[in-house]
Design a protein around this nucleic acid. Structure first.
Length: 333
DNA sequence: GTTCCACCGGAAACGGGGGAAC
DNA sequence: GTTCCCCCGTTTCCGGTGGAAC
């Protein structure tokens, strides 16, 4: 059934993109000065999850690199690399100057100094989930580098600017803004159809089934591709050559759940235990939640640390809090 | 209106861990 | 081997907030 599993991954960057011509044009224009050896304008891409922001940024920068030839690029996911140090490390990595940087002994200033000394070809850095940065000053660090151009990606523009001080927001306030909207059902079906063509045997899935997947994904291409991948695996396991409506129905929960599951797997042992307490207990008040957590571990973290964990889970949209003060409760989203 | 209490989250301090320098 | 340096997760401290009880 599956002929090329890579194209069924949401991260896969296709050779051609669909339904985003205008966005590609605007981003290309912002980065156009790079062709002449000058840094591009800072671009700020924003819009809902699964609207193709990351895919379009990588596609456009990749195409630019092919055109220019001598140019560097690096993709940094600020969700994973959220400290100032880690972002600088990733940026240095993109130009091959991070090999002897050690997480626990190299000072941040040393990283900045190395970047300042960089005088190679123009360098485009894509900072995805940029609103997740712990310290947005790293944007200013990069802004000041002479031949680095930035493409910033965020779900919510307001949240990004809310974190910035006046100096930063005035610098980035004039960025080229590119708004992405959710995909329509037809657009999603078209995207899924292309992925099925590249990654599955011929006639493995019909339009009706793709429309069903697109409908369940509600405009989110990442979820849609996840459901298609799950459906393909399920059909393979069942030994059939075609993805039926039934298989799609069975695959929707797992497909939707994938992003959440991946996040939970990255949690520490204590964070997972806390999450499982909420899974088992349902809506719970903070005090009771802490007591239940303590019952399950030998060496519990402090209440303050648990608040940090809950705050992190809230940020990841796994947990929601309702009410204030004594009436506050936590529950799974 | 006042007091009490549970909770929140910022700031600073602490300590583990790992590499560099000697 | 020892000391120093630095990042980062955790802890401690504490002021602020808002609902409940009186």
């Amino acid at each position: 059934m599956i002929t090329d599993a890579r194209v069924l991954q949401a991260e896969f960057s296709p050779k051609e993109v669909e339904h985003r011509d205008q966005e590609v044009d605007v981003l290309s224009s912002a980065l156009e000065p790079i062709v002449a050896g000058q840094p591009g304008e800072t671009a700020l891409i924003f819009g809902p999850s699964g609207a193709g922001k990351t895919c379009i940024a990588q596609f456009t920068v990749g195409r630019l690199q092919e055109a220019v030839g001598e140019m560097n690029q690096q993709y940094v996911n600020c969700w994973q690399d959220y400290t100032r140090f880690r972002v600088l490390y990733r940026v240095l990595e993109g130009i091959g100057r991070a090999a002897d940087v050690h997480r626990q002994s190299t000072p941040r200033d040393e990283l900045l100094e190395r970047l300042r000394k960089y005088d190679g070809p123009q360098y485009v850095v894509i900072l995805d989930e940029v609103d997740q940065l712990e310290d947005p000053r790293v944007l200013y660090d990069l802004y000041r580098m002479s031949n680095i151009s930035m493409v910033l990606i965020t779900n919510r523009e307001e949240e990004l600017f809310a974190q910035m001080d006046e100096r930063l927001s005035s610098r980035f306030g004039s960025s080229v803004r590119i708004q992405f909207e959710r995909y329509t059902l037809d657009e999603l079906v078209s995207i899924l159809s292309a992925r099925a063509r590249w990654g599955l045997v011929a006639d493995a899935v019909g339009r009706q089934e793709l429309a069903l997947i697109g409908d369940a994904a509600a405009g989110d291409a990442r979820v849609a591709i996840g459901i298609l991948r799950n459906a393909a695996h399920r059909a393979s396991r069942e030994g059939v050559d075609e993805i039926s409506v039934d298989v799609v129905h069975q695959s929707i929960p797992d497909g939707k759940d994938e992003v959440r599951q991946k996040t939970i797997e990255q949690f520490t042992e204590h964070q997972q235990i806390l999450y499982n307490v909420l899974v088992d207990a349902g809506e719970t008040q903070p005090g009771e939640l802490y007591d239940l957590y303590c019952e399950r571990v030998d060496d519990p973290k402090t209440r303050r640390t648990i608040r940090n964990y809950l705050s992190k889970m809230d940020h990841y949209k796994l947990v929601v809090s309702d009410g204030n003060g004594r009436n506050r409760t936590y529950r799974l989203r």
